[in-house]
Design a binder for these strands. Structure first.
Length: 569
RNA sequence: CGGGGUGUAGCGCAGGUUGGUAGCGCACCUGUCUUGGGAACAGGGGGUCGAAGGUUCAAAUCCUUUCACCCCGACCA
């Protein structure tokens, strides 16, 4: 490709709204342009990047026996009503109406559509298993889009769906995808980690997330320091290793705490550590109001609560609901003398003589003890794991790191096939629902993640397999015939070998060409300048290491190919 | 949705408090010169000051409303 005939509008300055490196660099490298919050145009270089990732994804998916198709981005409401998700999938689902006032949505995911396709055509166990995938633009009306392509509202995703005759088959399909995903992310040159995850809104029995480790990640990954257990904080279970409180119970008393509402304020006021306080959270669990108590310095985990109650929707109760059910203003709730059931996190069992809200304004109770002053309905694992907590799998301790979720695989079971009546006949002639799995990769997010992991102050450093161009040829003096001719020859030679080369044939100064090449992140650079050319040499530079060396013009193409192979290995 | 902030040339920003000629850097166009790390000089083009309404002789500036975008808390590839 000739730079002068291409379109890479690089920016010298960072757009004011870019926050993270990948977003800044993508904007500066002329890959994307924002149209609206969370909605971006992919400029030519951005498209090439997306295609690079897609190419790797396709190859590995096909190898794993999955078959590509494409489903519509706009879907009728009926299908979603059938699966029951029209009402459950909240505001993220972009609902639209057509001219006949019929309800549609812009697809955030495609379980309904694929299930509809499969049930229409497959009615025998003989056609199973089957795994279909697509690479499609999706839309999720995120509450807060941010970080460029990392969390866009419109984004490109590869989603695959497997259908099996039974659980064992589904497990096998799942394993295949697991392995394919590892291959994909390895080939993308990413440092990643596979973690156990909560299955969230998609539903299903178990799932894994593929996390790219990076400081800008929005997810917290728990991993053990001595075994290889790791999980999302949402999921990471904790052991019940707390012994009941055995100390002497002091008499409880109410104490005025003017102005102190949060745990930190109360702790400061009473001069006790956060861990000597119990915070009581009032929750709405499928329209039932309950209270959950966790230690003051711990964080409540709503996903765990949701799973414990096998609920569809769990949310914090509104101030009005709190007042109606406890008589308490928000911030002063406590477990004593309230009508709703009170649950506790494991960690509270060993606490005694602690402080809780007194269910009235500006008042807390101290020296409270469960068993005497109130009863827990049940005690279970309701909090987020933290660094230093004990591993569930061994004697090690948890560590916590940040990650970007680039892939997520779910074993769905029969959730969708049952609700949508997608059945096949088994070898006994009996009707069974398909056992399903679904598997997503955020293609556009992979591009972001790759940049987060591979950059320096000058710009992007693409891993070779992702690089939009493997080599750039920079003639430094466009008015010098020898320089231009030599560069053209090298360009032609390499292009003829099927290598993606960018020839910077713009009449720009050396500095401009160097800076753009480094910003765009091309792995190898060939510099053709007057001085070195006088000695019959050109300079070959490696972006990732910053090394460079001079080579005779006649040998340079061989040398470049050799270096390229070295980088690809 | 709650809290905070920003909208002025393609990009980055000043100006606003004290109303009175719309400014700077980069980019762009023309020319001279230069050419291994974002050159220099000279000349030039480009603006409904986010939008609507109001106050005023006069509004980028003051008032009201509204929209968009960004950041901090509940979602997900």
């Amino acid at each position: 490709m000739r730079y002068s005939k291409y379109f890479i509008p690089t920016l010298r300055e960072v757009p004011a709204d870019a926050e993270v490196v990948s977003h800044k660099l993508m904007a500066r490298a002329g890959m994307i342009k924002k149209l609206a919050s969370g909605i971006y145009s992919y400029l030519p270089l951005g498209v090439v990047m997306i295609k690079k990732v897609e190419e790797i994804v396709r190859q590995c998916m096909n190898e794993a026996g999955a078959i590509e198709l494409v489903m519509p981005s706009v879907q009728p409401a009926e299908l979603w009503q059938e699966s029951g998700r029209w009402d459950f999938y909240g505001k993220e689902l972009l609902r639209i109406k057509d001219r006949h006032n019929r309800d549609f949505c812009y697809g955030p995911t495609h379980e309904e559509v694929i299930t509809d396709i499969i049930r229409s055509y497959i009615s025998s166990y003989k056609a199973l298993p089957i795994n279909l995938y697509q690479i499609q633009t999706k839309f999720r009306d995120e509450v807060r889009p941010r970080f460029g392509l990392m969390r866009g509202r419109e984004f490109i995703m590869k989603d695959a769906y497997s259908f099996d005759v039974d659980d064992a088959g589904a497990n096998e399909s799942y394993k295949k995808m697991y392995d394919a995903y590892c291959k994909i992310f390895e080939r993308c040159g990413l440092r990643y980690k596979v973690v156990e995850a909560d299955s969230g809104a998609i539903g299903g029995s178990y799932s894994h997330e593929f996390m790219v480790l990076a400081d800008t990640g929005e997810d917290f990954v728990i991993s053990c320091d001595s075994c290889d257990y790791s999980a999302n904080v949402e999921k990471a279970p904790l052991k019940n290793e707390y012994k009941p409180f055995a100390g002497e119970m002091k008499p409880a008393e109410d104490i005025e705490t003017p102005g102190a509402k949060t745990v930190a304020e109360v702790a400061e006021f009473l001069k006790v550590p956060d861990a000597a306080i119990i915070k009581t959270m009032v929750l709405n669990v499928d329209d039932k109001i309950i209270a959950v108590c966790v230690r003051g310095d711990h964080e409540l985990n709503l996903a765990k609560v949701k799973n414990y109650f096998d609920a569809s929707i769990v949310d914090f109760a509104t101030p009005a609901e709190i007042f109606d059910h406890t008589g308490s203003p928000m911030g002063f709730c406590g477990p004593c003398d309230i009508k709703i059931p009170v649950y506790g996190d494991f960690a509270v069992t060993e606490m005694g003589n602690y402080c809780v809200g007194a269910n009235s304004k500006e008042t807390h109770k101290i020296n409270v003890n469960h068993g005497r002053d109130f009863q827990f309905e049940a005690v279970d694992d309701f909090r987020n794991a933290e660094a230093g907590d004990n591993c569930v799998a061994c004697d090690g301790k948890y560590e916590i790191t940040k990650g970007i979720e680039v892939g997520h695989i779910f074993k769905l079971g029969t959730k969708y096939s049952s609700s949508m009546n997608a059945m096949f006949l088994d070898n006994n002639g009996k009707r069974n629902p398909f056992v399903m799995g679904c598997y997503g990769i955020g293609v556009t997010r992979v591009v972001s993640a790759a940049i987060e992991q591979n950059h320096d102050e000058k710009g992007i450093k693409w891993p070779v397999h992702l690089a939009p161009f493997k080599i750039c040829v920079l003639p430094l003096a466009m008015k010098d015939k020898d320089v231009v001719e030599t560069a053209e020859n090298i360009y032609k030679n390499l292009t003829d070998r099927g290598i993606e080369v960018l020839l910077d044939d713009r009449d720009e100064r050396a500095g401009v060409k160097f800076n753009d090449a480094e910003l765009i992140g091309i792995p190898l650079r060939v510099v053709v300048g007057k001085k070195t050319l006088a000695d019959g040499k050109v300079e070959i530079g490696v972006r990732s290491t910053g090394e460079s060396s001079e080579t005779a013009v006649d040998d340079c193409c061989e040398e470049i190919v050799r270096k390229l192979q070295e980088l690809s290995a």
